[in-house]
Amino acid sequence: MSENKSRLQTLFEQGEFVVTGEIGPPKGATGSGIREHAKHLKNCVDATNLTDNQTAIVRLSSIAAGLHVIQAGVEPIVQMTCRDRNRIAIQSDLLGAYSLGIKNLLCLSGDHQSFGNHPTAANVFDVDSIQLIRIVKRMKDEKVFACGEEIKSDEPRFFIGAVANPFADPFEVRVYRMEKKINAGAQFFQTQIIFDLERFDRWMELVRERGLHERAYIMAGVMPVKSAKVAAYMQKSVSGMIVPDEMVDRLKKAEDQKAEAVEICVEQIKQIMKIKGVKGVHIMAVGWEEIVPSIVEKVGLLPRPQIPGAALAAV
C-alpha cells in the first residue's frame, strides 16, 4: 500500500465521487450502538465521521468511537474540536488516534459550551481550527510538534479535513477563511448541511474563482429531513443553516413524509453532483443511519468502489 493512505484519500485521488456518513457517539460507555450504525453504513459510504462531543454534550470520545467503527469494518473520520483540549491534549490524542489506525481527521472549532449539558464548564480554545490544521500538517510534513520539537519517529500522518459553512455571514469571508484553511493544510472539506442549492452554487462559483476546488477536495453536506416538523424546527432554531420554505411545504404536503424526505435528499445529491468542483457528498443522517443505503442506491452511487489489497487495520 502506498504510503499508508486512508481509503478516503485514495478514492479522492482516484477521482471517485466520495460518499461519507456521520455517527454521533452515545451518552454512555458502550460501543454497541456505534457498531450497529456502522453496519448500516458499511458498503454504502467510504468513511464515516465520528463527532466530538457535538453541541458540547458529553458523549463517548470520538477517537474511541473511531476504533469501534474500524472494528465494524468502516473507515472513520475522527472529529477534533478546539473547545475541550489544549495543544498538549490535542497532540497527545492525535498520536493515540493514529496509533489505533485512525487516518482521517476533521478539525473544527467546536460549538460553544453554553449550548451543551455543561454550560458552566471552562472552555479551552488554546488554538483555533486553523491553527489546529496547521499543527496536524506540521506533525506530518515537518515531523515536529507544535512547539517545534522534532518527532523522532512514527509521526501521525493524517488526511486533514476541515469544515466550511457556505451559509454563514459575511458570504465572501467564508471563502477567504476556506482558503486560509487550505493554506494551513486542509486537504478536504465537508460543508455545512445544504438545503439552499442556489446559494451553494453561488458560493462554489467564488470557490472556483479562487481556484480552491483544485487545491482541496470539497464534499457537500446533505441531510435527509424526516418530517415537515423537523424541517420547520431547523428553519427556526438551528443557526448557520438556511432551510427554504419550499422544502418545508413539500414535506408537509407529502402523504409519506419519510419517503418524500428521501426523494428530496436524492434530488439534492443529484444536483450537487452536477456542480463543478464538488468531489463528494457527506450525508448527515444522525439517528436515521438506516436510511443512508437507500439514498446512496437511489442516487446511483452503489456499489462503492473497492480498493484492491486495502483492509482496515484490525486492532
Partner: peptide, 16 residues
Amino acid sequence: CSKRILNGPCGGSQNG
C-alpha cells in the same frame, strides 16, 4: 470572540 479565535470567524457567525 466567545471562542477567542485568532483566525475567525467560526461557522457560528450569522448576520453579524
